[in-house]
C-alpha cells in the first residue's frame, strides 16, 4: 500500500511517500505564505522525483500547523501523534522524542508500540525553537547551517540568562559589544534553548533512548547542548526533519 504524509510546519513543508513500510522518498520545501499551496507543491515535487503518479497513492494524512489546509488529505492528525509514530517506525527502541521545529518545541513520551503516553509543548513563546535560533543567527551574522559546527569550537559557553527571544537578542548584542567570541555566544544560545526544553522534558519524564526530530536536529550544537542538559545520549536519524511526515504516511496505512 502506497501512502503519503504531509507535514506543514511554520517554516518548511515536508512530504514522505512510503510503500508498505519502505520509504520511497522525502522532500522539504519552504512553506511560505500559502500553506495549502505548499502542501500540494511538496507532494507534487516528491512524486515527480520518485517517478510516481498521484493516482498510485492510496491514502494521505496531513499534519503540522497547516494540517487542516491540505484539502486533498484523507485525514488530519496532530504532529504529536505523527512524531511518535514516525520515531517508532525509524527506531522502535525510542521511548522519548524531542521535536524542535520552527514555531514550537515539544517533548513526547511513547510506549513500545509508538503510542503517545504523554507530551508537553512550549506555550506561546519562541524561546527554544528554530525561530529563536534564526533570530540569533541574524544578530550574529552567521549562516544558520554554520551555527552547530561553530558552537562546538567554543571554549566556554556564554551565559544567556533571558528566556525571551526578544530580550535574549539584545543580550546577545551586548555580548558582541563586550567582545565575546561568536563561538561562545552560539554555544550559550544553544544551552539557553536546551535548558528550556529540558525543563519541559523533565515534566513529562525522560525515558531513554531519546530521539531528536525536527529541523533543529540538523544542528549538531543544539543536539550536544541538549544531551548535556538531559544527561543522556540523543539519537538523530537522517530523516529527523521529515519524521512527522513519515509518521503521517505510516498512519495513512490504517485508513
Amino acid at each position: 500500500m502506497i501512502t503519503a504524509g504531509i507535514d506543514i510546519g511554520s517554516i518548511t513543508a515536508k512530504a514522505a511517500v512510503l510503500n508498505d513500510g519502505k520509504i520511497l522518498g522525502t522532500r522539504v520545501l519552504f512553506t511560505g505564505y500559502n500553506a495549502k499551496q505548499a502542501g500540494r507543491m511538496v507532494l507534487d515535487e516528491l512524486i515527480r522525483e520518485i517517478d510516481m503518479s498521484m493516482d498510485a497513492i492510496n491514502a494521505v494524512v496531513s499534519t503540522g500547523y497547516g494540517r487542516n489546509s491540505v484539502d486533498f488529505a484523507d485525514k488530519a492528525v496532530t504532529e504529536i501523534t505523527c512524531h511518535g509514530t514516525g520515531a517508532h517506525f525509524i527506531d522502535p527502541e525510542i521511548r522519548f522524542i524531542v521535536d524542535v521545529g520552527g514555531q514550537d518545541s515539544k517533548v513526547i513520551r511513547i510506549d513500545e508500540t509508538g503510542r503517545v503516553l504523554d507530551f508537553a509543548m512550549n506555550d506561546k513563546c519562541a524561546a527554544g525553537t528554530g525561530r529563536f535560533l534564526e533570530v540569533m543567527a541574524r544578530a550574529l551574522e552567521v549562516d544558520l547551517d554554520a551555527f552547530g559546527p561553530l558552537s562546538l569550537q567554543a571554549d566556554a559557553a556564554s551565559k544567556i540568562s533571558s528566556i525571551c527571544t526578544v530580550f535574549a537578542e539584545s543580550e546577545v548584542i551586548s555580548l558582541i559589544s563586550k567582545g565575546e567570541t561568536r563561538e561562545n555566544i552560539i554555544a550559550g544560545i544553544h544551552d539557553a534553548a536546551a535548558s528550556r526544553i529540558s525543563a519541559m522534558a523533565r515534566r513529562v519524564g525522560i525515558v531513554p533512548p531519546v530521539m531528536m526530530t525536527g529541523g533543529v536536529a540538523k544542528n549538531i550544537g543544539a543536539v550536544r547542548a541538549l544531551e548535556t542538559r538531559l544527561e543522556t545520549p540523543i539519537r538523530v536519524s537522517p530523516h529527523a526533519q521529515v519524521n512527522g511526515a513519515i509518521g503521517a504516511a505510516i498512519l495513512a496505512r490504517k485508513l
Binding site: 513500510g21 500547523y65 492528525v77 496532530t78 504532529e79 504529536i80 501523534t81 509514530t85 517508532h88 517506525f89 510506549d111 508500540t113 509508538g114 503510542r115 503517545v116 503516553l117 504523554d118 507530551f119 509543548m121 505510516i250 496505512r253
Partner: peptide, 25 residues
C-alpha cells in the same frame, strides 16, 4: 486546538490499546 486534538488522540490511543487494538507500525 493542537494541544486539545493531540490530547484527544492520546486518549483514543489509550482506549485502543486497552481493547487490544494497538498501533503496531
Amino acid at each position: 486546538k493542537l494541544r486539545i486534538n493531540a490530547f484527544l488522540e492520546r486518549i483514543e490511543g489509550r482506549k485502543k490499546a486497552n481493547k487490544g487494538d494497538g498501533d503496531e507500525t
